[in-house]
């Protein structure tokens, strides 16, 4: 899955967690807090991504995620590892 596809998927998952969110404003630098994602929403987001991309987030590393880009970069790196 290329970067654009990963971004689209992650943004779709975020859209199901916040009421009336304008998804066109979401980019890699968007912070979870700014988007209105609470800690439960973030855990659910990681779960969605694990299922969709067939990866497992390292829970210690995932605790440090604060932005959309953090998740996307992790997925990119681990998909690359899985296929190399």
């Amino acid at each position: 899955m290329d970067t654009a596809e990963i971004e689209t998927k992650v943004i779709q998952f975020i859209a199901t967690k916040v009421e009336n969110l304008d998804t066109s404003t979401i980019n890699r630098s968007s912070k979870f807090e700014e988007l209105g994602l609470d800690s439960m929403d973030t855990i659910q987001l990681l779960f969605d991504a694990e299922d969709a991309f067939g990866i497992n987030f390292d829970s210690e590393e995932a605790k440090g995620f604060t932005s959309v880009g953090d998740i996307i970069s992790y997925i990119e790196n681990h998909q690359a590892q899985a296929s190399s």
Binding site: A15, T16, K17, V18, E19, Q44
Partner: peptide, 14 residues
């Protein structure tokens, strides 16, 4: 006939 999407947002459904 029940369709949760007819009256609940994706957040509620999830």
């Amino acid at each position: 006939e029940f369709n949760p999407a007819s009256f609940l947002s994706p957040k509620y459904i999830e």
